[in-house]
């Protein structure tokens, strides 16, 4: 019989998918105002004005949800020397040659880097978002700060969206990942193959 182990609890999964849904809405509505070729995406939220009104509120919701996620996964995302060794062999990683790679804990170095990149960009998005939030907050900030904030918001969002594209692709590429985040469990062979150190910890073997 196939042995399975729990990878994400029900609350972790709900937390992840709430963050993911808000992210998708934010990315699409944000791109709508970023480039004219994407303006049609404002229709998703009911037009340009509704996009302007809703985007910041959804943004705050995403940040709060992500903050809970961060507190859940913080301990598993500390970067170690092992992670540097794993990253140095990115060619093997990308070519599915996992044999002989340094052992991976609950998250690999790529996942950890994404974790920290998301935390950094979301902090920047939150702060700059408040500075440009019309009509509530933007009027109280000096114009140079507002100008800096629109640029920061655009660049941070770009980095975050780039990171999430890679994140989504990786979950499709590494078979079993999507099931881990939807159903919560992984086969023990999967855990042993991709997260050997974590597998040892949770299986006690």
């Amino acid at each position: 019989m196939r042995k399975v182990i729990e990878r994400y609890s029900a609350n972790e999964r709900l937390n992840h998918w709430f963050t993911a849904i808000t992210f998708v809405i934010l990315a699409l509505s944000g791109l709508a105002l970023f480039h004219p070729s994407m303006y049609w995406l404002t229709n998703l939220l009911g037009g340009g004005t509704w996009t302007r009104i809703l985007h910041p509120f959804i943004g705050v919701a995403m940040f709060l949800s992500f903050l809970v996620l961060v507190s859940r996964f913080w301990a598993h995302n500390k970067l170690t020397r092992n992670d540097a060794r794993w990253l140095a062999r990115w060619r093997d990683v990308l070519n599915n040659r996992e044999e002989g790679l340094p052992e991976v804990g609950r998250f690999n170095a790529g996942q950890k880097l994404l974790f920290w990149a998301m935390l950094l960009t979301m902090l920047l998005l939150l702060i700059s978002g408040f500075v440009i939030w019309q009509p509530y907050f933007a009027p109280v900030f000096p114009i140079t700060l507002v100008r800096l904030a629109v640029l920061t918001h655009a660049i941070s969002a770009f980095v975050l969206i780039l990171g999430i594209i890679v994140h989504i692709y990786a979950s499709l590429w590494i078979k079993g990942s999507v099931r881990a985040m939807t159903r919560g469990y992984v086969p023990s062979a999967w855990a042993k193959k991709h997260h050997a150190a974590w597998y040892r910890d949770v299986s006690g073997s």
Binding site: R2, K3, L94, N95, N96, E98, L162, I165, V166, Y169, L172, W173, I174, K175, G176, P187, S188, A189, W190, K192, K193, H194
Partner: peptide
């Protein structure tokens, strides 16, 4: 990035686990 990801899948293929490996 989207295109590159797709081409990576076409080039390298999925990373699958043989679940009977154990």
């Amino acid at each position: 990035t989207v295109l590159g990801s797709f081409f990576h899948y076409i080039h390298v293929g999925p990373n699958e686990t043989d679940e009977d490996e154990e």
